[in-house]
Design a protein around this nucleic acid. Structure first.
Length: 310
DNA sequence: ATCCCAATAT
DNA sequence: CATATTGGGA
């Protein structure tokens, strides 16, 4: 012991100490506004950043102007998220040195990915969608968030949540996070937190993770010899042998230029013999010739924009 | 409480 | 088929 704790507990304090106090009624966090330019110095929300003629010259489609309501909602959402976040040492540590994703990366996670769940059929009743503020917080990309006027109580208790669709972007994010956290920390809750996609639940991740693990198992486990590897080795996925201090590899750059090949550190459970298997990489199965490996091939069915990097 | 996994449901 | 939900054991 000894040493000293770094002084960046801002988040911890924020949520730990009496969170209620720093939040003003309107969902406004004064703390965040200290030192920021006043409203008068900022470009009005309603004003476009790119002049119309410039925009058209470059085929930039103008975005719908944000309103104060949008901002407020986004703020609300962030606040509630911070409140419910449990300051686990591991996850906070992970959060600290996790580089943010490229801001322009569209996750395509929105009304698009949440298909109409239920009953009846046909058109989309505005009953189950994640908060539109997603557009502000996360990715915004192409979200036909056509509602402008009527303020939807979208986040009001929607008993039935729509099914999540794991788009390639979403999946990539998932993969990135899993790769970044060591095996050790790649658990649903942490993954969910790091992915930082609003509306994404722990069970969404858990379910996906389960499937993903099955997939990995098939890939790694199907080695001709020593077929009977004790499954607890598989299911537990022991980090082989390494001190649990730095399997992290905070050095792992999360932005690979190429969409394929996912470097997953320490993933494979080395077969008893320890040779012949190129572990450490998650196969991308580019052999599209006949690859009938469960996990990936299904991913091209839909709107032609799927699969890619399983 | 959370995780993990298999089975089952939608 | 892809996800969600559930049940039971860590």
């Amino acid at each position: 012991m000894g040493e000293e704790a770094a002084g960046d507990d801002e988040f911890d304090r924020l949520s730990a100490s009496d969170g209620r106090e720093i939040v003003e009624d309107r969902g406004r966090v004064m703390y965040w506004e200290v030192g920021l330019p006043s409203g008068d110095d900022l470009t009005p929300l309603s004003q476009m950043l790119v002049p119309p003629h410039l925009a058209s010259a470059f085929s930039v489609k103008p975005e719908p102007p944000r309103t104060d309501m949008d901002v407020q909602r986004a703020s609300q959402y962030t606040i509630s998220n911070l409140r419910r976040t449990a300051p686990s040492p591991a996850s906070t540590a992970a959060l600290r040195n996790f580089s943010p994703f490229s801001p322009d990366e569209s996750l395509g996670f929105e009304a698009n990915d949440l298909v109409e769940n239920g009953d009846s059929c046909g058109h989309i009743s505005r009953s189950g969608q994640i908060s539109p503020s997603a557009a502000l917080e996360e990715a915004e990309s192409s979200a036909p968030v056509a509602e402008d006027s009527g303020d939807e109580p979208s986040s009001s208790r929607n008993p039935k949540r729509a099914r999540l669709v794991w788009t390639p972007q979403l999946h990539k994010r998932f993969i990135d996070v899993v790769a970044h956290l060591g095996i050790k920390n790649a658990v649903p809750k942490t993954i969910m937190q790091l992915m930082n996609v609003d509306g994404l639940t722990r069970e969404n991740v858990a379910s996906h993770l389960q499937k993903y693990r099955l997939y990995l198992r098939r890939m790694n486990g199907i080695q001709d010899d020593s077929p009977s590897l004790p499954d607890h080795l598989l299911t537990t996925m022991q980090p082989a042998k390494k001190s649990l201090h730095e399997q992290h590899a905070p050095y792992t750059p999360l932005q690979y230029p190429m969409p394929t090949m996912i470097p997953v550190p320490t993933f494979g459970m080395a077969p008893p013999h320890g040779h012949g298997v190129r572990i450490g990489m998650v196969p991308t199965m580019e052999h599209q010739g006949d690859g009938r490996y469960a996990f990936e091939q299904h991913y091209n069915g839909a709107l032609g924009e799927r699969m890619k990097d399983w």
